[in-house]
Computed example of a mutant assay.
Amino acid sequence: MKKRLFSTLALVLCSFLICLAVVADLTGKWSGAIKTPNGDFPVKYTFKVEGDKLTGTADGADTSIPITDGKISGTNFTFNLDFNGTMLKNVGKFYGDSITIDVDYNGTNLHGMLKRVEEK
């Protein structure tokens, strides 16, 4: 009986800690490229997670765009960017050391992969 109770408690605790680790690890700076028909578009994102809310910025070569309507659920997240008056819906997946992002640009799906930027 004690063994079963201990196993159940350990499983619940591990699940809780894994969920917290996943959410906490998305916070930070990420760098990569979005593939477009005209070639790769380099991007840098800074994410901040507070509960299930995602905020931050997307930084291109000459601009910084605030993230709006950001939400996170486990390893999945969504947010919007207002790019020169065009709303870009972003859907992402967190894999620990990398992120994939799909961007809806006027009905065209653009895909990107980002890696965490190591702070020095």
Rank of each mutant, 00 (worst) to 15 (best):
L81R: 11
L20M: 07
F16E: 00
Y95C: 07
I72S: 07
S98G: 09
E119T: 13
G56F: 02
M113P: 15
H111W: 13
N84I: 02
P42F: 03
S31R: 04
Y45Q: 10
N38G: 10
G112Q: 12
T8W: 07
N76P: 15
F83D: 07
T78C: 04
T55Q: 06
N38P: 12
V49M: 12
N106F: 04
F47W: 03
D59A: 13
L13D: 05
D97R: 09
I18T: 09
T75G: 08
T57R: 08
D25A: 10
A33I: 12
L20I: 07
F94I: 03
S73W: 08
K29W: 08
T57K: 08
M87S: 13
D62T: 10
D62C: 14
E119V: 15
K120A: 09
K89H: 08
N106G: 02
V12Y: 10
L11S: 06
V91C: 07
K44M: 06
K71Y: 07
T36Q: 02
P37C: 02
E50A: 10
G85P: 04
Y95L: 10
V49L: 12
G60H: 07
S7L: 15
L88A: 01
A58D: 12
V117W: 14
T108Q: 15
K29A: 09
K120W: 13
